[in-house]
Structure formats: structure tokens, C-alpha cells
């Protein structure tokens, strides 16, 4: 396992996580509330892609636009059902209403698709590529490309369109946005649409390699939550950085004994570098970050919201 190959995997996993975390942080900024169904939207995107692939028989890349559109609609539905009626209530109310949305999505998926894992189609195809001596799967490289493209598109949306500027204004200060005549409710619905589309894209990208089941959402939810916390609450760049960091930890920690062979002969190295220990170490590390640096790892820029 060459380092370069590992890094490709880190980037691929991190890029997909970043899409989930971006959706999470966009909703957080626009509404001040945690969308606990963000992971289940990833799951919904995975199953949505399976459904589309079954009907259309095309590669993942081709059905991506249709998936994004469908997920955006789902996002608006979630906003209407679980956020809009709770606008004037404390953020916990949305936390709980989105937990309910998650339960509904999981059980609808279970009803429609069954509990067995299924795979989404690959973006281009299977197989592996070699460049500059690095051997990587086509899918991993494609994930990096597509995620980068989506993030760039998001950036353009935010900086170069009227819609994006209004979204940002809404996220920055809702009351002020309302005062200067921005249709805040529509902007928030738009944010849910964008967030759900990003989650859906992540579902398509991740579920080819890792499959999707009705219960696979919760894991992504926790990853996104953690990414946003270590990246700095409300920071968009921080969310991407946090997602990459988590992916790096997830891939590299269990591989440490391979990268540093001396560790392999350490007593009970199997247990210390097992996947389960890796989860415990990550959780404890995040707890420490929360306690020591509640503003996140990346500087002061992040706004801290209660």
C-alpha cells in the first residue's frame, strides 16, 4: 500500500464526505439548526441512483443531473415539512423534527427497496488507472473529480449569482436579509434543496464502493456533524477541511502499522489499530477538540452560535 495510493483514497472519501458536510453546514447557517436527516438524505440519494439506473441503464455520471434535481425536490419537501412550521421555535425543535424525517426516510426505503445492501452504478466504469506510478480505481478518481466539480459549482453559485448572494445574506443574518427584502423563506427552501442535492450526489458517489442500505445514513450524519464541529461551526471551508481530516483519519489510522512497520510488533497492535479502536479514538479526539477548542481546529474565522 503505497502512500500515494492511500492519499487518493483519502481524497476520494474526503471529497464525498465534504459534500455531505457542506449540505449540513449550509442548512446550519441558514437556519441555525442541525439537520439530523442529512445522513438519511445520503441514503436516499443512493437508493434514488439505484432506481434511476434500473430505469435508464446509463452510467452514474449521466444520471447525476437527474438525481440532483430529484434530491433538490426532496430537500424542499423536507424544508416544508420539518423546518418551515418551526421557524420561530428553538433549534432543538428542528433537531427533533429532522430526526423524525430520518426515521420516515429509512422506513420508506426499507419498504421500497428492502433491507439488503445494493450498489449504485459507477460514475464511468470499473477498473483501475495508473498515472505517475500511482495505481487507483477509476471510481476513486472520478469521485474526486465530480466532487471537486460540484464544490466549484457551489462556489460559483455563491459568488457569482444573485440567488447565491441572497443565500449567503440569509445565512449571515436572517433578520437583516428579511429587512432588505430578500424572500428569506424561499432562500431557506433553496438551501435545503442545495443541501439535499449535495447529499444525494454523495450517496451516488459512495454507494458504488460501499453499498447502501436503509440504515446506512446515520454513519454519514455523524461524520458530517463531526466535520463541521472540527472545521469550525458555520465555516464552509472548515467543513470541507474537517471532512478531509476525518477521511484521512479513517483510512490512515488502521493502516499505521503498515506505514510504520515497527508498530506491527508492538504488543496487541491488532487491537490498538483495529477499526473499532479507530472509531473510539476519533470520538475521543473530537470530544477533546470540543472541550479545548470549541471554535474548531481552523482559526477564529468561524462564528460561534449557541
Amino acid at each position: 500500500m503505497a502512500i500515494a495510493q492511500l492519499l487518493v483514497e483519502v481524497l476520494a472519501l474526503g471529497a464525498a464526505y465534504a459534500l455531505v458536510a457542506l449540505g449540513f453546514v449550509l442548512i446550519l447557517n441558514a437556519t441555525g439548526a442541525v439537520n439530523f436527516a442529512q445522513g438519511d438524505l445520503v441514503m436516499a440519494g443512493g437508493f434514488g441512483a439505484v432506481l434511476l439506473a434500473d430505469r435508464l441503464h446509463v452510467s452514474g455520471l449521466v444520471l447525476l443531473p437527474a438525481l440532483l434535481a430529484g434530491m433538490a425536490v426532496l430537500g424542499v419537501v423536507v424544508a416544508l415539512a420539518a423546518y418551515m412550521p418551526l421557524r420561530r421555535r428553538p433549534p432543538e425543535a428542528v433537531f427533533i423534527s429532522t430526526i423524525a424525517v430520518g426515521i420516515i426516510l429509512q422506513n420508506v426505503a426499507n419498504r421500497l427497496f428492502g433491507a439488503e445492501p445494493v450498489a449504485t452504478p459507477p460514475l464511468f466504469g470499473a477498473g483501475r488507472v495508473r498515472f505517475a506510478g500511482v495505481d487507483a480505481s477509476v471510481q476513486s478518481v472520478a469521485i474526486i473529480g465530480v466532487a471537486a466539480l460540484l464544490i466549484a459549482a457551489l462556489y460559483t453559485l455563491f459568488t457569482h449569482t444573485q440567488f447565491g448572494r441572497r443565500l449567503r445574506a440569509t445565512a449571515y443574518d436572517r433578520d437583516m436579509a428579511m429587512a432588505i427584502g430578500i424572500p428569506v423563506d424561499r432562500m431557506i427552501a433553496g438551501t435545503f434543496a442545495v443541501a439535499a442535492a449535495l447529499a444525494g450526489a454523495a450517496g451516488l458517489l459512495l454507494s458504488n464502493t460501499f453499498f447502501v442500505t436503509p440504515s446506512s445514513g446515520s454513519d454519514y450524519m455523524i461524520k458530517a456533524y463531526i466535520a463541521v464541529v472540527i472545521g469550525g461551526w458555520g465555516s464552509i471551508r472548515g467543513a470541507v477541511a474537517g471532512a478531509l481530516l476525518i477521511a484521512a483519519f479513517e483510512v490512515l489510522y488502521p493502516s499505521l502499522p503498515l506505514l510504520v512497520p515497527a508498530l506491527l510488533w508492538m504488543p496487541s497492535s491488532d487491537a490498538v489499530f483495529s477499526q473499532t479502536t479507530s472509531t473510539i479514538v476519533l470520538d475521543v479526539a473530537v470530544l477533546l477538540i470540543l472541550v479545548v477548542r470549541p471554535q474548531g481546529l481552523f482559526g477564529e474565522a468561524a462564528r460561534q452560535r449557541p
Binding site: V34, P91, E92, F95, I222, Y225, I226, V229, W233, T279, I280, D283, V284, V286, L287, L290, V291, P294, Q304, R305, P306
Partner: peptide
């Protein structure tokens, strides 16, 4: 000792992670 002073969403995540551990 470390967690209780955290704000809403931080506290929620911290307690979630403790449960996971």
C-alpha cells in the same frame, strides 16, 4: 466536567459521541 458547559449543538454531539464510545 468537560462537556456540560458546551452550547446546544456541541453538547448534543458530545453526548452522542460519549454514547457511541
Amino acid at each position: 466536567i468537560p462537556v456540560l458547559r458546551l452550547q446546544t449543538h456541541y453538547f448534543a454531539l458530545a453526548t452522542l459521541l460519549i454514547g457511541q464510545v
